[in-house]
Computed example of a mutant assay.
Amino acid sequence: MGVKFGREYEEIIEELTGAMSGVRNCNELFEMSEEDWREMDEQERKDCITTLADDIFYGLGAEPTMSFGSCQIVYDRDNHLIKIAAEEKVVHIIRLI
């Protein structure tokens, strides 16, 4: 079905990347130790998360709820939003239109 959006795709991915960058232990999703993750420079870490954000964005079109580390990412079709929740609280909302 796909995620419907009206904003610039790059803006959505940039916002999703920013939200995902703050997730605790996100290095585990890349099967990297904390030490290896820290050894990467900031741009390398951002590139990894941006690639994953892109995958998650398209994945939400087929599966409207996905996990990312300790967070749940939910595509709210009716309201054209992506919600990122941690510990059952919405911590970030990305508007798609």
Results as ranks from 00 to 15, higher is better:
Ser67Asn: 12
Glu31His: 15
Gly22Leu: 07
Glu35Thr: 10
His92Tyr: 14
Asp78Phe: 07
Gly61Ala: 05
Ala86Lys: 12
Gly18Tyr: 07
Ile84Tyr: 04
Ala85Gly: 08
Asp36Arg: 13
Asp47Ala: 14
Ala53Pro: 10
Lys89Leu: 06
Glu87Ala: 04
Thr65Gly: 04
Ala53Tyr: 00
Glu44Gly: 01
Thr51Met: 13
Glu10Asn: 15
Glu35Leu: 09
Glu14Pro: 07
Arg77Gly: 06
Glu28Gly: 09
Leu96Met: 01
Phe30Asp: 09
Lys89Pro: 00
Glu11Tyr: 10
Ile84Asp: 03
Leu60Arg: 07
Thr17Tyr: 05
Ala85Glu: 11
Asn79Thr: 06
Glu10Met: 10
Val90Gly: 07
Met1Lys: 09
Arg45Trp: 02
Glu15Arg: 10
Met20Gly: 05
Glu87Gly: 11
Cys26Ala: 08
Leu29Ala: 09
Tyr58Ile: 00
Asn79His: 11
Ala62Thr: 12
Leu81Asp: 03
Pro64Ala: 03
Met20Arg: 02
Glu42Thr: 10
Ile49His: 03
Ser33Gln: 00
Asn27Cys: 09
Met66Trp: 01
Asn79Ser: 14
Gly69Val: 01
Lys89Met: 11
Ser21Ala: 13
Ile84Thr: 04
Glu14Thr: 12
Gly59Val: 01
His92Ile: 00
Arg77Tyr: 13
Ile12Gly: 07
Arg77Asn: 10
Ile84His: 03
Leu16Glu: 05
Leu60Gln: 00
Glu15Leu: 02
Ala19Thr: 03
Lys4Gly: 10
Gly69Gln: 05
Thr17Trp: 01
Lys46Tyr: 14
Gly2Trp: 09
Glu8Cys: 11
Ala86Gln: 14
Ile94Glu: 09
Gly18Asn: 15
Ile12Arg: 05
Arg24Pro: 04
Asp54Cys: 03
Ile12Tyr: 07
Met1Asn: 08
Phe68Ile: 02
Ile82Phe: 08
Asp47Lys: 10
Glu14Tyr: 13
Tyr9Gly: 05
Asp55Leu: 11
Leu29Gln: 12
Gly22Asn: 12
Ser33Arg: 02
Asn25Ala: 14
Arg95Ile: 00
Pro64Ser: 02
Asn25Ile: 01
Leu60Tyr: 00
Leu52Gly: 05
Glu11Val: 02
Val23Arg: 01
Glu34Asp: 13
Val74Phe: 08
Val90Met: 06
Ala53His: 07
Gly2Pro: 06
Glu34Gln: 11
Ile94Val: 15
Cys71Ala: 13
Lys46Ile: 08
Glu34Thr: 02
Trp37Thr: 04
Val90Thr: 15
Met66Ser: 01
Gly61Asn: 08
Glu10Leu: 15
Met40Leu: 15
Asn27Gln: 15
Glu14Ile: 01
Val91Asp: 05
Arg7Lys: 14
Gly2Asn: 13
Ser70Met: 09
Asp55Gln: 13
Asn79Leu: 14
Cys71Glu: 06
Gly2Asp: 14
Ile73Pro: 01
Glu8Phe: 12
Phe68Ser: 06
His80Tyr: 14
Glu15Ala: 04
Cys26Lys: 11
Tyr58Glu: 14
